[in-house]
Design a protein around this nucleic acid. Structure first.
Lengths: 208, 208
DNA sequence: GAGCGAACTTACTCGCAGTAAGTTACTCGG
DNA sequence: CCGAGTAACTTACTGCGAGTAAGTTCGCTC
């Protein structure tokens, strides 16, 4: 039964081919189970190879993960960067960039969690708990936004959620940035700039 | 030399007191070294107690971490929520909320990393790599913003950075939210709403 | 001062990242 | 066709850290 179309029974491959094979499996498994949830033995088993081989090629678990990251990052950046100059003016460019970003992540759902999803790093109850912190703020903001809608305007649930998530996300990111920046601007300056960025838009959105 | 003010040489304490002692040490160590970087033996040693005792009281490493989280979360939420109704109108409330948020995190630097900092979960080169992905976008956005400043306006470096970080943060968060929401609105809707939220403010900021 | 429950410890298991040292298959010059 | 050299690959470990089983000691009460 050694037909000609039989898949070769796991022979040796040259290094480049094996590396690609390993990278593909790693991207898939990291995407499915997250960084913590993935063991090197899992990846090795999926490829049908022993663990030290992966260490020889990628050095460490981090190394393997970083290799996945690099590929996806390049793809994503390229997609978004390409969308921007196609637009005619700055306003369009902003919109086009957003669409490209969300579209890419829609089209590559597993790429996504490898790239950015923080939940990937802490699975289960921990992710749930940090989510709760976030949700508390999102609700707080949603309430504020809702309170300031003119009574005649029907509330678009999705829209309000989008606004609240945006604001919460921006705020959180600024906080991270401030801790990592040597001489960060004082809280008042950051708050003022953020407020100026958002307030006009909120006003417009709540009256149109 | 058994003076009356001598601290008792690590005798037994009742459960509640020990729990508080452990929680305090855990908050400090998690804050310093992050979740991954902290071992239960570290915490046990810091308190001067053996590891199983911590397991008896907190169940697991996650349990201990969640206990820290709960305390900090309550503090933070309270601080921000209190700042909001003190304001006279919606615009002020938004600003006051932002200030309270950034101020709290300034005042509790170690609380911060326990609460939200994603870097806490992946230390070292991994954090650096995901940061690079973010920075690439921040730069892209900064460039776009800068290009659209009127030539006479001097660029405020901090301000532009704040804007770029905000936009990048909002975008990232919306992406996470979309993956976790059953029927998320299509990319175009999200992009449109986000664009409407930000565009007015960007226009205003670049001309004033 | 005997007994009893709460506080606490010693001494493990198990899973997984990482490694040392060796073995097998391909290949190329003769 | 053959032997040497090297790239591909494996077996069999170490070490560390989370989590646990099974006790042991302290302090209080009757």
């Amino acid at each position: 039964m050694t037909s000609t179309t039989e898949q070769p029974p796991k022979r040796r491959r040259d290094r480049a081919a094996r590396e690609r094979e390993i990278l593909a499996a790693a991207e898939r498994i990291f995407g499915e189970r997250g960084y913590q949830g993935t063991s090197m033995d899992d990846v090795a088993a999926a490829v049908g190879v022993s663990k030290p081989l992966i260490y020889q090629y990628y050095g460490s678990k981090d190394g393997l993960f970083l290799a996945c990251l690099a590929r996806l990052r390049a793809n994503l950046l390229e997609t978004v960067s390409d969308a921007v100059p196609a637009a005619t003016d700055a306003e369009d460019a902003l919109y086009a960039g957003f669409v490209a970003w969300f579209q890419f992540l829609d089209d590559h759902p597993q790429a996504w969690s490898v790239l950015i999803d923080e939940g990937m790093l802490a699975a289960g109850p921990m992710a749930a708990a940090t989510d709760e912190v976030r949700n508390a703020f999102v609700e707080l903001i949603s309430t504020m936004v809702r309170l300031n809608l003119p009574p005649n305007r029907p509330a678009d649930t999705d829209e309000i959620e989008i606004l609240a998530q945006s604001i919460s996300g921006a705020t959180e990111r600024l906080a991270v940035w401030r801790t990592r920046t040597p001489n960060p601007p004082p809280p008042e300056k950051v708050a003022r700039t953020l407020h100026e960025l958002l307030w006009q838009g909120l006003k417009t959105l709540s009256t149109t």
